[in-house]
């Protein structure tokens, strides 16, 4: 059974198609990267697939069940969602923010069971946040906050993680660390769907790439099969050199086409 399956999802606002006929299928053990230029509908597609936005057409199935029939709690136990906008209003300590990842299990920052606590500790460790547990959110840098949010998503220990630009504010080292965390999650038999703007990261760490342009998924497949000079020009409008070294893909983007 696929973790998350989108079938011809469509969504329009005032006759403008933000997402049109988008289908994909996420398997266990895979990191899937969703890539596309700004405004291509990536975030909207994620929200449709999660049932946070009602699709005009098409369906999304989580573990075989339609998202419209799942309760929010049932969905949250299947999928941890890390949105692009992560506004914090209260200077809460890091540990409490990560603890919110256990919300769907009836937990809250003030009341964590032993299982919840263990999951929170592990998530903090995997994002290298030890020593930050009691730091207030407003004393953290943007990159540190991104790691806190990533830890929050990991704390749910869900079969699938859906992340919207999780590495945008991170320095190169933590970009790679974050992608490696995703690889580890996949190696445990879980799944990851992540929007990535850094194409080199997508090529390096994803098993599967969904290429999106103007609301449509225009190509999908392994990085090896789908990265090409022509496609990078057609989808992103950039001049790029694509080299294949064994099973790896190397990109050299020289500028706008």
């Amino acid at each position: 059974m696929s973790l998350l399956r989108a079938e011809v999802l469509s969504y329009a606002v005032e006759d403008r198609h933000l997402v049109a006929d988008a289908s994909f299928d996420l398997e266990r053990g895979m990191v899937t990267a969703l890539i596309g230029p700004n405004g291509s509908g990536k975030t909207t597609l994620l929200r449709l697939a999660l049932g946070l936005l009602a699709a005009d057409d098409g369906t999304a199935l989580i573990d075989g069940l339609s998202v419209t029939e799942l309760t929010p709690v049932a969905r949250a136990r299947q999928i941890a969602y890390l949105p692009q906008m992560r506004p914090l209003v209260w200077p809460q300590p890091v540990r409490d923010i990560v603890a919110l990842g256990r919300f769907a299990y009836g937990a809250a920052p003030g009341r964590l069971s032993a299982t919840d606590s263990a999951a929170v500790n592990q998530a903090i460790a995997s994002c290298s946040l030890e020593g930050f547990e009691e730091r207030a959110a407003d004393t953290l840098s943007g990159g540190e906050l991104s790691r806190v949010h990533l830890a929050r998503a990991l704390a749910g220990e869900t079969p699938l993680i859906v992340a919207d630009e999780p590495v945008a504010a991170l320095d190169p080292r933590f970009q790679h660390e974050a992608m490696r965390i995703f690889r580890k999650v996949a190696a445990e038999g879980r799944g990851v769907l992540t929007v990535v703007h850094d194409l080199a990261l997508a090529a390096r760490y994803a098993d599967h790439v969904l290429w999106m342009k103007e609301g449509r998924i225009v190509a999908e497949g392994s990085p090896l099969d789908t990265f090409s000079t022509d496609r990078l020009d057609a989808v992103f409008g950039v001049n790029a050199e694509v080299r294949r070294e064994g099973s790896a893909v190397r990109l050299d983007i020289s500028g706008p086409a």
Binding site: L50, L52, T71, P72, V73, A74, R75, A76, R77, I79, A80, Y81, L82, P83, M85, R86, P87, L88, V89, W90, Q92, I97, L100, G101, F103, A104, A108, P109, G110, R152
Partner: peptide
């Protein structure tokens, strides 16, 4: 009350956490 804790992450993340 418990739902208010989830809302401290913002509406969208709170929905993702399983809040109605």
């Amino acid at each position: 009350g418990r739902g208010l804790a989830a809302l401290s992450l913002g509406d969208e993340a709170a929905e993702g956490l399983g809040l109605n």
